[in-house]
Write a protein that binds this DNA or RNA. Structure first.
Length: 589
RNA sequence: CGGGGUGUGGCGCAGCUUGGUAGCGCAUUGCGUUUGGGACGCAAGGGCCGCAGGUUCAAAUCCUGUCACCCCGACCA
């Protein structure tokens, strides 16, 4: 169809909106794709909606190709199903809640696992009905603590979420692979740079889990990639292989040394090299065992102190810790807590005061590198004193291990192939994971198997952030002149610009637009007349970012029009009588 | 949650120190001149200055509260 600029519901802005920091956000507002309605909540204008609909169409086609069926749940949901799985409480401030006139609780759905599970329970009860994959493209609501970057993290957003239902693990694996393959095809078509990484699955009780991350600088996730093999993982999911235990029969006995004024790792290392120099090499932060305390707040309101022991040259990565302790939340151990635990000497905490068997009873988990037989310098639980040659497994025994230490570029690849890890920023665009039986168990979704026995169904969960995809694609493709859409998602196939005042230009442009439309293209025709100078039209066409721009202007007198490629900026002078054919060729590749 | 900054027509901003008829640029409307890289002139419409209290003869401006947005921090022993 043809959309005319003279009547399209659009106003482009010359200046950047003051509240937008991220480039894609600025340009989507400036080019008239979206408007802010409330914090983290956006209105979709015609141009934006076109892009959104095209992305949805690509997703729908690929979902159909794997036999997934579309349905749609309400966004306004009753409390009961979320109560049954504990998430009414677990979500805390993260969801929008409301009440009807009778005082009954409702929520705006942040995600729909419960509803999918229940609808299958409602309709199906036999293994013969499985496998099944169903999905929806739905508006989700999450009351984010800090919405940011326009569409990248909103409080209202569109998500495609699918679920697979299988009677056994082999079936789940097949469903998972089918979705994963479909996602590869979808993200290839959406035309941005992405990487598939291993993700943290433990939180939802599942097993296999992978994320599709767009490689963009404004991404909120950090992932690592191996320099030699194909290993790639979200830092939250990197699992450090525990080194083999070290024999410690010959290790010297531990001893306490005075280390006055050494409350930090740096001051401690400096002191050791001065007062207790090693024969083989200088002391480093990696020789020390630092013990960091956190307060965990469980969803049921219970609090617990957790101590984490890790090599002194590493910090605790909050995102990794968050993933490990989920659904509990954590906060730093504060002055008030120190005051309540006089046995803990701030800056000099050692394993002696930690562990469930110790006087404090504080649960003590260590980094996997702290294996049996390793020797450490660590706090002696008294100000100005440390212990040297404290051997793990001999002098102290932690309650377990935890993957919370930061992962650094240059760390060895967990696959042990000699490669090292390099870090990059990414934005989560899609997530596939094997949910398993968590929701089916909580909501009692069972079917009869071929032997007439009830079995719990196993599920997979597969999401794509649709509105986020609009922003991520924009972010990954824009340039100095504006948006620059890949052909598959652009709001139009071609922009026809009538640049000039001569009536014959408009007649030709009108005719060309009609012919392109008749050939099945989506055409944006800049038919504005009057005080609009050609420069304004060129700037707008570039800002809006349709991939092909046809300029019908002064060249028409010589029988040529200009066909420009938005991305490369290259322009070709094409004879007027061959423009239709030429543009069709360009658009259809 | 803490710190900083900012809220004034659709968008970008000035005015606030020192209270006294609300301004500029872009956008919009009309007329005229212009027409290949965000033209020009003249005229016009549009804002209870985030919101709520207070001080005052008088508040965009001073005071208190509140809400929102942006940025930074969320810190390690």
């Amino acid at each position: 169809m043809i959309e005319r600029m003279s009547s399209l519901f659009l106003r482009t802005l010359r200046d950047d909106p003051a509240d937008a920091e991220v480039p894609s956000h600025r340009l989507l507002v400036r080019a008239g794709y979206i408007r802010r309605a409330a914090p983290g909540i956006y209105t979709w204008l015609p141009l934006g909606l076109r892009v959104l609909r095209r992305i949805e169409a690509i997703i729908r086609a690929e979902m159909a190709s794997i036999g997934a069926q579309e349905l749609s749940f309400p966004a306004l949901l009753p409390r009961e199903p979320y109560e049954a799985t504990g998430r009414w409480t677990e979500y805390g401030d993260g969801i929008f809640r409301l009440q009807d006139r009778k005082g009954a609780d409702y929520l705006l759905g942040p995600t729909h696992e419960e509803m999918f599970t229940l609808v299958v329970k409602d309709l199906y009860s036999s293994y013969k009905d499985l496998p099944l994959s169903i999905y929806q493209i739905q508006t989700k609501y999450r009351d984010e603590a800090r919405p940011r970057a326009g569409l990248l993290r909103g409080r209202e957003f569109t998500m495609k979420d699918s679920y697979s239902f299988d009677v056994d693990d082999a079936g789940l694996e097949t469903s998972y692979q089918a979705h994963r393959d479909a996602y590869v095809r979808i993200f290839d078509q959406l035309g941005f740079d992405y990487v598939i990484v291993s993700a943290h699955a433990g939180a939802m009780g599942g097993s296999r889990s992978e994320e599709f991350l767009a490689r963009v600088a404004v991404g909120e996730d950090t992932f690592v990639q191996c320099t030699v093999c194909d290993y790639a993982a979200n830092v939250e999911a990197v699992s450090i292989p525990a080194p083999a235990a070290v024999p410690f029969d010959d290790a010297p006995a531990s001893r306490v040394v005075d280390t006055p004024g050494t409350p930090t790792i740096d001051t401690l290392v400096a002191h050791l090299n001065e007062a207790e120099p090693r024969a083989d090499r200088p002391w480093t932060g990696g020789d020390t065992l630092k013990n960091v305390l956190f307060v965990l707040e469980h969803p049921d309101g219970r609090t617990e102190t957790l101590a984490i022991g890790l090599p002194g040259d590493r910090e605790v990565d909050e995102k990794r810790l968050e993933a490990q302790v989920y659904p509990a939340e954590f906060r730093p151990f504060g002055e008030a807590e120190f005051a309540a635990h006089p046995a803990l000497a701030k800056g000099y905490i050692g394993p002696g005061a930690l562990g469930e068997e110790s006087s404090t009873g504080i649960r003590y988990l260590v980094d996997p590198r702290v294996v049996e037989g390793t020797r450490w310098v660590t706090g002696a639980d008294a100000p100005g004193r440390h212990v040297v040659d404290l051997v793990a497994g001999r002098d102290f025994t932690p309650d377990g291990t935890i993957e919370a230490a930061e992962v650094r570029a240059g760390d060895p690849c967990p696959h042990g192939d000699g490669g090292t890890l390099e870090a990059e920023r990414g934005l989560e665009m899609g997530h596939v994971f094997q949910l398993g039986r968590k929701f089916a168990e909580a909501l009692d979704l069972k079917v009869l198997d071929e032997n007439g026995k009830l079995v719990t169904v196993t599920m997979g969960s597969y999401g794509i952030g649709v509105t986020r995809a609009v922003a991520a694609i924009a972010e990954g493709t824009l340039d100095d002149a504006g948006l620059c859409w890949p052909r598959n998602v652009a709001p139009f196939d071609v922009t026809v610009v009538a640049a000039g005042k001569d009536a014959s230009l408009f007649e030709f442009a009108e005719q060309l637009s009609g012919d392109l439309d008749a050939a099945g293209l989506e055409v944006l025709y800049d038919d504005r007349t009057g005080k609009i100078s050609p420069g304004v039209k060129f700037k707008d066409a570039e800002l809006i970012g349709v991939p092909t721009i046809v300029v019908v202007g002064k060249g028409l007198a010589d029988g040529v029009v200009e066909v420009k490629d938005r991305r490369s900026g290259t322009a070709e002078q094409v004879p007027a009588d061959r423009v239709l054919e030429h543009v069709l060729g360009v658009v259809r590749g």
